[in-house]
Design a protein around this nucleic acid. Structure first.
Ligand SMILES: [Zn+2]
Ligand SMILES: [Zn+2]
Ligand SMILES: [Zn+2]
Ligand SMILES: [Zn+2]
Lengths: 165, 165
DNA sequence: CGCGCGGTGGTATAATATAACAATCGTCAC
DNA sequence: GTGACGATTGTTATATTATACCACCGCGCG
């Protein structure tokens, strides 16, 4: 079972990030094959770029990096790839940042809760069933049925809060 | 004690919305006077426009409406007013919609959870202490300290889900 | 072959937001 | 009053993010 590293905690500087990238790409291949989706070179490359680190990336950053590859990429190219990756559950879009981050739990359908460090910009994807249940229950009490959720928490990660004296 | 209507449930078509607007404006005046902030005509007018209904409004929509007033408004004008109103806790920005909505609980500091109907676009601001506590606890377990939260739930409000057979 | 469909390339433009500087207004000390 | 100063607004320009639209390509299929 290939799967990206759990990443349900902030990654250490020592962690083998090449493995993060490799796991994400391998998992994406598997998923796409299983679902009959086409994991084309552009889509693969965009996913790889998104996984360059654990920080969210803007679409135009990706565009620049694609251009540096040699291919003259235009906005629709990267947005199409992103749309595909988000739909396939391989990438999440962070609405508060207009940026994209690799999904840490791509092996099952979910909509996580994101912890975003305002200092180092790293992101961790939590998945708290408790929070999900509370929200669902309280929304239902108002007669509201949730279809999508966007939960983004900004603050300081452990490393950055200990730095701040 | 003036305060906008609770709006912790979806508003009925029959409710006296003029009262919603009036309460929001009166409360804003009070708040600004208390905090020594200047509730200028532009800021007042923008808040009034935001409260035209219970749906979020985009900055450029507001801009159009301001222009229709006669004043030749430019983007910075409306963005500055919005910045002020958000900072004063009178308005919230919805990241998933790039839009703004009047705060339903402006009488105390908070960061609510928004229920957004994808059909009628109405928004309700929940304030669930339970959700807040769960998130805080689970984030702290990862060493993360939350400074801001953005929680936006999209789905169907009671009225729109009963319409859909 | 002829057709349809998903993917890509490319141009243009829409929609959202901010930078930078000038002009004006309010307030307060003098 | 009036000059000084900070806060607010006016104005122009530009940055940033995202989509509409059409042409072309490659491939499977009747
Ligand atoms: Zn890593
Ligand atoms: Zn950090
Ligand atoms: Zn109302
Ligand atoms: Zn509705």
């Amino acid at each position: 079972m290939t799967s990206p590293r759990p990443a349900d905690t902030f990654p250490t500087p020592e962690h083998d990030h090449a493995e993060c990238i490799d796991a994400a790409l391998t998992h994406a291949e598997d998923t796409c094959r299983r679902l009959g989706l086409r994991f084309t070179p552009i889509r693969r490359r965009v996913l790889e770029l998104i996984w360059q680190n654990h920080e969210p990336v803007g679409a135009y950053d990706l565009l620049d990096q694609l251009s540096r590859d040699g291919r003259r990429a235009m906005p629709p190219t990267v947005y199409r790839a992103l749309e595909f990756l988000v739909a396939a559950g391989l990438v999440h879009r962070l609405a508060t940042l207009n940026a994209f981050v690799g999904c840490a739990h791509p092996d099952h359908a979910h909509q996580g809760q994101f912890l975003i460090c305002r200092n180092c910009r790293r992101v961790v994807e939590m998945e708290s069933p408790k929070v999900g249940r509370s929200l669902k229950r309280e929304a239902e009490a108002l007669g509201f049925s949730i279809e999508e959720q966007s939960i983004e928490l900004t603050g300081l990660c452990p490393d950055c809060s200990s730095e701040a004296h």
